[in-house]
Design a protein around this nucleic acid. Structure first.
Lengths: 250, 250
DNA sequence: CAATCGTGATGACACAGGTTAATTTACGAT
DNA sequence: ATCGTAAATTAACCTGTGTCATCACGATTG
């Protein structure tokens, strides 16, 4: 079941068994990608989209000086560039952050789904709109929060998304990002990200290491980042505590 | 023809005559709204969406201290909260900025369109994805540009969008925004927006007044804002110079 | 085993933009 | 016309974050 994490715990869009099966058959190929690999370049015409199964991916826009602004981070279960199906050409690049396993879905297969299954089509549409809602939360983060708030907000968001994917127990998760990734996410320099991480550590809110993120005080961290998870449309009532997330190194 | 500006000049999604007619019949009611009026509140369930006919609207997220971050500005022709059709509940508020005329489209009418007309449904989907692309450009603006660049980017973007709507001749357009709106768009204070506007005026790039924005040097302004219009998916080849945009006050 | 490179950590200093407050201008209401 | 209020403008000062530079550590690689 490659699609098992897709739209999981998403409020109001439960996938029926037949719908999930139909998506499974739409998958053309499973691929493993090395870390830090570009998979989509802005401006090129696309005929397929990527469902992320394992690992982390990013979408970003380059500026004139070669710096980049990340506009999205994707976790397992995300249909990373489904928006390329209607748009055909993207305005940004897509790359792996860590090693990743992906399912390739040809647009021709999505085409037949939109012809036959309006209900499933609507759920695909919905999933692209969650990405847009996350964009808006990121706008809030960049426009209204200071450096500490931005990092706290991002870590809180990622924690909830990974809980929904069964990859965090609510306090501890693996994330293959380095400090300069955080800088490109939060619109800060890596020097300042380093200062912020030290502060979060010293205030016993959260410890960020590339291999493992540990949230010591989830409520306070969320408060510092003014994080309100409503925009994720996740209903964690139904989420079991996973067994597969990283354990403390006691 | 209330829908005449919807998806106009949008690359690859030309609306057929029958499709446009179908959208027209989906309209329930035409309303006029006063300036600075809230029309959607975050968290409330919605059963209709708004097509903007005249005026300007915004979408925004409040922070803890009552400050707000605008996440979108809408111009005539935009289907402002079409994303509420799949999402049902929004993560942000929607309000008019100026006086506005809107067409109300009940979700039940959209429902039948998605049942009957997959091609039109895809174009509706497309239009919500343009909003997402604009979100990403705004992320770039907030994350990577300094104050002058942010304002230059926003004005350049708005100019192109209004050209497509037939409301700018490429150098001059009416926009009912005040300086503190710009502040809430660009993640700055209104005091600093004022400094930036003076600089843009003194460098003869652009003159911003609430009633009229005049771009003296569009190319240089776009360069300062690192503005690349590709993300708008507008094909202005087919755009005629409008007669309805504001004339110089010679 | 040394050399290299990616990543993280830290200090000194600079500056863009925030804060506060006062003043001026524009404009709708009466 | 005149008043009242919202918006725009400007100045003085302050602070959060950027810039630049250096060093430490661990993982590769030759």
């Amino acid at each position: 079941m490659f699609t098992e994490r897709f739209l999981r715990h998403r409020r109001g869009v439960h996938l029926e068994i037949e719908e999930r099966a139909r998506l499974e058959t739409a998958i053309g190929e499973i691929k493993t990608l090395p870390p830090r690999t570009n998979v989509v370049v802005a401006g090129e015409e696309l005929s397929q989209s990527i469902l992320l199964l394992e690992g982390f991916m990013s979408r970003y826009i380059d500026d004139r000086n070669g710096l980049r602004q990340l506009v999205a981070v994707h976790v397992p279960g995300d249909f990373v560039d489904l928006h390329a199906f209607p748009l055909k050409i993207l305005d940004h690049d897509v790359a792996t952050m860590t090693a990743a396993t992906v399912a390739i879905v040809p647009h021709s297969a999505l085409e037949t789904i939109t012809q036959d299954l309006p209900a499933l089509s609507r759920k695909l549409w919905f999933s692209t709109l969650i990405d847009a809602a996350i964009h808006r939360a990121w706008l809030f983060r960049l426009g209204r929060l200071d450096a500490v708030g931005r990092v706290a907000h991002f870590i809180s968001e990622t924690n909830v998304r990974l809980m929904s994917a069964g990859l965090s127990d609510g306090r501890r998760f693996a994330l293959g990002l380095i400090q300069s990734d955080l800088a490109e996410i939060c619109g800060l320099t890596n020097v300042h990200i380093n200062r912020v991480l030290r502060q979060l550590r010293e205030e016993r809110l959260c410890v960020f290491r590339s291999s493992l993120v540990e949230i010591l005080d989830p409520e306070k961290l969320a408060a510092v980042g003014q994080f309100n998870p409503a925009y994720l449309y996740i209903d964690l009532q139904s989420a079991e505590v996973p067994s597969s997330c990283p354990r403390p190194i006691t």
